[in-house]
């Protein structure tokens, strides 16, 4: 390749801009890390705020998460996930840690919860994430309304089993069952979708 074709052709296939920024951060490039923060922080802040619900706590979660991302950027090359997925998982984990420490009573924004289904998806940065989110949406549609609501409350607001039971005014055992069965139904649907996708258009017998 000649020098004139530019550097973009040189990147390993499948890596996009965020993945490049993470790789450069792994080598100590603070400029790339600053750009990574500028690109992803607003999304991640919103994810955390939903769970911890107080801005100072979400700021703490975001700060800790990005320090973590900087310190473990070289792990990303092995993680093989989409960059936003990798970073969102870090932020969600930190946020859940923080509410374990601080939250006594769940405090759900009723309107937010009621509108959960109407929220507009923001344009996903990654085709991979878009495809996965799409598949997930379809499979969530196969769940009972109550299972879906329970799982969505847990995911977006970080509610524990007992917080879910209080909020939904359901016995704890019922809530646990909804979560467990809902997730397993989701798994079956996702695996089915995966198998179909990997087999292309041929009607090969499912091996699962």
């Amino acid at each position: 390749m000649s020098a004139k074709t530019g550097v973009r052709d040189e990147f390993p296939p499948g890596t996009d801009r965020l993945a490049q920024l993470i790789a450069r951060s792994a080598l100590g490039d603070r400029g790339a890390f600053a750009e990574l923060y500028r690109s992803a922080s607003a999304k991640l802040f919103a994810v955390s705020l939903r769970i911890v619900r107080e801005r100072p706590l979400a700021e703490e979660a975001l700060q800790d998460s990005f320090v973590n991302i900087w310190n473990h950027a070289s792990d990303y090359a092995r993680a093989k996930s989409a960059p936003m997925t990798w970073m969102t998982a870090i932020v969600r984990n930190r946020s859940l840690d923080i509410i374990r420490r601080t939250r006594e009573e769940p405090d759900i924004d009723e309107e937010l919860t009621a509108n959960l289904a109407d929220e507009r998806a923001s344009p996903a940065r990654e085709a991979q994430e878009r495809a996965e989110a799409h598949r997930l949406q379809r499979c969530l549609g196969e769940l009972d309304a109550e299972q879906r609501q329970t799982i969505a409350l847990a995911f977006f607001h970080g509610l524990s089993h007992s917080e879910l039971a209080n909020h939904l005014r359901r016995p704890l055992g019922t809530v646990k069952t909804h979560v467990r069965r809902g997730l397993m139904k989701l798994k079956d649907c996702l695996m089915r979708a995966e198998t179909t996708a990997s087999q292309g258009t041929l009607d090969a017998p499912p091996f699962l």
């Binding site: 607003a42 919103a46 969600r92 923001s122 996965e132 997930l136 996702l190």
Partner: peptide
């Protein structure tokens, strides 16, 4: 990888 992209639905702040 399956569940986390769900967070894409949240509007950035």
């Amino acid at each position: 990888e399956e569940l986390t992209p769900w967070a894409e639905r949240i509007a950035p702040i």
